[in-house]
Amino acid sequence: MTCKGLLLTATTIGLLLGTQTMADTADKKIALSNNYAGNSWRQAMLESWKRVTDKAVADGAVASADAFTTAENQATEQAAQIQNMILQGYDAIVVNAASPTALNGAIKEACDAGITVVSFDGIVTEPCAWRVKVDFVKMGRDEVEYLAKRLPEGGNLLEIRGLAGVSVDDEIHAGIEEGVKANANFKIVGSVNGDWAQDVAQKAVAGILPSLPEIAAVVTQGGDGYGAAQAFAAAGRPTPIIIMGNRQDELKWWGEQRDANQYETMSTSIAPGVSTLAFWVAQQILDGQDVPKELTVPFLSVTQDTLDQALKDTPEGGVTNVDYSQDDAKKVIAGSK
């Protein structure tokens, strides 16, 4: 090769580096350790991961990005899975954890082996790991703030909580309580656990409704709004304002009610695609970027104005989703500094 040719090649590589800034992580291997796959949200999360990482691998951003899911949603099983990943020589592990604390031992082992660990959704408290967090307390507070705008005179609230004993449930609940404290004309008159599943929510709401006074609004945690609406309809009660959680059946029901009687509400949840944000964060850390340990992702909200678009984009029977890009990750990282 001539001197000129070498120079040209070097320039080309330099240009490529300039546009993609990915070459440093091209030989890196990232693994996803996932604790559960048994609902539509988790399925959407895994699909997002596959879609984004397949492209990232094809583009040469990373060497591989394999997803592994444990069968039983057990912390012990996931700890063993992470230990296997350490032995297999992954450079980074992205983890949706079965427990915020029970995996800390395995996470520490991974860090000590020089592996980058990024937790998201189900985050871990181990200080050496990164946390892609959602401000669930704010999510609860926002629901009540929205209701305060819609119902200035206040009213009775029914709260549908998630799975008892899970930190996300406690956090959203705390946010709702804060919101109610700030807006004293609201009162929570009943509370049930809907386990983020609409048939469970429907069952629980149908059981408590007979003993409740008139309900002005229902505050929820996602996945339970449609079930609540069904329970109100079956009991022959007027439909209150039910906060939705981005499931397609919830949005569809909302759209039908809007067309029939100008029903208005809002819908908010964490996008399953947050797994892809965690992936790009891991890639950025491997790339040598300075990334703070705590990152906050915005939630994905659907309003009266964006309902039609959301309905169009959400697959029949699925969850409203968004795949994050490398630029999104950079923005979130910059915003958290």
């Binding site: 048994g38 048939d199 449609y226």
Partner: peptide, 15 residues
């Protein structure tokens, strides 16, 4: 149950 609650869900049988 699936007909009653408007569709099958992956975790519908858990309880």
């Amino acid at each position: 149950l699936a007909c009653f609650s408007g569709g099958a869900a992956l975790n519908m049988g858990a309880e």
